[in-house]
Design a binder for these strands. Structure first.
Lengths: 205, 205
DNA sequence: TGACACATACCAACCGGTTGGTATGTTTAA
DNA sequence: TTAAACATACCAACCGGTTGGTATGTGTCA
């Protein structure tokens, strides 16, 4: 990457991803974002008509970031789609460590502050969460066919359940000021998926 | 003893529970809260040194509200502790309908906006979530003994997993502006618990 | 009993700082 | 030459919180 040629617009989106995850959308001022990005207020309002518009752009960038990160992760090389699904969940569990703001979800954070007051931002967060979550559907579907799993559930609902459990894990981590409870919750999710597919429990170290 | 007249303090806590769930903590101004409660700003700062202190009081009231509501619900009459646990989850799933702000969690909403910036409020939210969630532990523990269930998990972690899934369900509901995805996620949670205890899937209507 | 001391509950007006946003430049690259 | 990219200076509205004050108890002791 060549960060030397980063435009003010890109720097502001990067600043929003960082600061909003720490302080939330409303508590983050335009001045905060300009300071973090190293640009002036004039540059801000040149690129974004309102603060909300930067939030929308950040949510879109967040979706692309997530789909890039998880779409090219090592576990995606597995031949069995079930291994790819489980690899995704284990990867997400193993990401739950270190400072809380570094592993939590921008869209999940912003939607709580916007869902009743800023419809455009809420919709962008919806698109971010669904747009990433549903990328799992083809592999879940293929895994069901491959392993002959029927059940009283849809692949879409399971993919969204993944996102719900992870969003809930982030809330536990924020409240607990650490990631242990979040990892335990991710372990329950992995155990659930293994049971759905008739696999034995994961081996413990 | 208890006069029908509600004090300014109680009215402000009630106003916070309502308005903060709609708009979030930071977007709710002291004037908003006073208007909703029908009291003046002077009364506000007579009872609460800061806005944050009202948030803390609201989180405590929220915990008491939840423990009262779920502790006295009809399903608690079941003799088998497993039926009480499943009754709890079914009750929580069935609550996921109507306007989103009416079934979401005050503590989960506030902790996202406070965890890095307002430690006192974050701790109060932690106490609210854990303090309610862990009330399920004795029944989970009793259900394991009664049904001879061992497994590579603790009753505490399962109780917190319940809260994580529900918090995640609330985020899906906020993003989706409706409760369907949240109910589907609660169904996955119920299916998980039934599998942990070797029960057949819930019957569908 | 009465009266004084003190406490609690509440109120309207106000304050300095911060907010998102604007108006008006200046620089840069094609 | 021109338009987009950025900077500087500024503003009106709003923010959390403070002020000085009133009304209504409530405990104490002569």
């Amino acid at each position: 990457m060549a960060p030397a040629k980063e435009s003010a617009r890109e720097k502001l989106i990067g600043a929003a991803v960082k600061v909003v995850r720490e302080k939330g959308f409303n508590a983050t001022s335009v001045d905060d974002l300009c300071r973090e990005a190293g640009v002036t207020k004039g540059a801000f309002f040149h690129h974004f008509p309102t603060k909300t518009d930067l939030g929308v752009a950040a949510a879109e960038a967040w979706k692309l970031h997530a789909n890039g990160l998880f779409g090219s992760a090592p576990y995606m090389a597995h031949e069995d789609p079930l291994d790819r699904v489980l690899g995704y969940l284990e990867f997400r569990r193993d990401m739950l460590e270190g400072p809380v703001p570094e592993f939590t979800c921008l869209a999940g954070t912003m939607v709580q502050e916007s869902y009743e007051t800023l419809p455009a931002l809420r919709d962008a967060c919806h698109d971010s969460i669904w747009g990433h979550g549903l990328t799992l559907v083809p592999d879940i579907e293929a895994a069901r066919k491959r392993h002959g799993i029927n059940g009283d559930w849809t692949s879409e609902s399971l993919a969204l359940h993944f996102q719900a459990v992870l969003q809930g894990a982030f809330i536990l981590a924020k409240a607990d000021h650490g990631a242990k409870a979040a990892r335990d919750t991710a372990d329950h999710l992995i155990r659930y998926v293994r049971m759905l597919f008739n696999l034995p429990p994961e081996k413990e170290a």
